[in-house]
Simulated scan of single mutants.
Amino acid sequence: MNSGPDGRFIKVGLIDSLYNLSFDSDHEIAERQNFVASTEADTTGHGIGVFALLQHYCKDATFHLYRTIAEDRLFTPQNMLKALDAARNAGVDLLNVSAGKHRPDCNQNCRLCVAAKRIINDGVCVVAGAGNRRRDEPLSLFCPALQDDVISVGAYEAVCTTDVGGEQPLHRQTPTIRPNGSYWLSPPSESDGWYGYPRDHYCGYLGCTPDISCENNRLERPWERNISYQRGQPDVLAPCHQLDTTSDGEPFLASGTSYAAPIVTGSLAMILGELFNRGKNPNPKQIQRAIVGETVPIDKGPVGKLNVEAVLNRLS
């Protein structure tokens, strides 16, 4: 149960493009604020993908939606500042920010970083995507993920290294999927799988079946479009590929730190729910130290992936 120390549900805030759900959900939307001029339920479709991940993990949470992204994908710091202030006033426990600004001259003193630090000091645990590299631009951590007390999330991918050929997956491949390998994915729910795919991990039909393990062919590496680590590095990595079924066409892989961040936020909701049941109420800085201290190394790269069980044990 994701319930707080006083028996209430954990409050999870989402700063994104989503304002209203276009489908029925068992989750309560306790608050929604719209900081852009749009009447659409979701201005870009980005927010609903992030929400889908959050609601999978946050079984009993209530949600607070703060729309800051316009239909032209325009994002302004002013809207983010308003949303951060609203989240603080609402007393959310966890705030997921799958958006940000690249500010090469910021020394954690820009308005976004200062505002994020302020609400963290007030007890709000902020989880933010580190940002995605655009083409060959050597971008560094985005704000507010750049702020030291924000739990910054980068992305990793698990690829299949086998040279065995086979039929192509039914979903549309993105340019980042290589001809001699495919991504390992997991279904987002306890359903029978995706469109007939196995319920467990699979790696693109490259010689693997539900009865034959392909674990030896699995390689975990940082996502190739992570930002560079010029001015610091993410605190933790999480999977970055999300099966997107929101369009009218075939399902396809959406990728980015936007989808890694809610995995961390959602996992923290489960962790906090258990800790609250044990009479524990860690502050955001304690949570961040536990996450960084308990990461698990991946096959390549200096930053490790989230270890939910170890974080729970460390905070207990």
Rank of each mutant, 00 (worst) to 15 (best):
D148T: 03
A155N: 05
C214N: 11
P144H: 14
C113V: 04
S152H: 09
R135V: 10
V164S: 15
T176A: 10
E215N: 09
G193T: 01
P104R: 04
G91D: 13
N217P: 00
G154W: 07
V164P: 04
T209M: 12
I119N: 09
R111C: 10
G129Q: 03
N180C: 07
R178F: 15
L219W: 07
H201W: 13
C110P: 00
T162G: 02
Y205W: 06
G100L: 08
E157A: 03
Q147H: 04
R172P: 00
D148W: 00
G193H: 00
D200M: 07
D122C: 03
L170M: 11
R103C: 02
Y156A: 07
S182C: 11
G129V: 02
T174N: 14
C208K: 03
E167P: 05
N217I: 00
Y195Q: 09
S152K: 06
D149L: 10
L95E: 12
Q173N: 11
D93A: 14
S140I: 02
G193F: 01
R178Y: 15
V153P: 15
L206H: 10
N132E: 06
G166Y: 03
L219E: 02
A115S: 12
D200I: 06
N107S: 13
P179D: 05
G166I: 10
R135W: 01
K117C: 08
G196W: 01
K117D: 14
A155P: 00
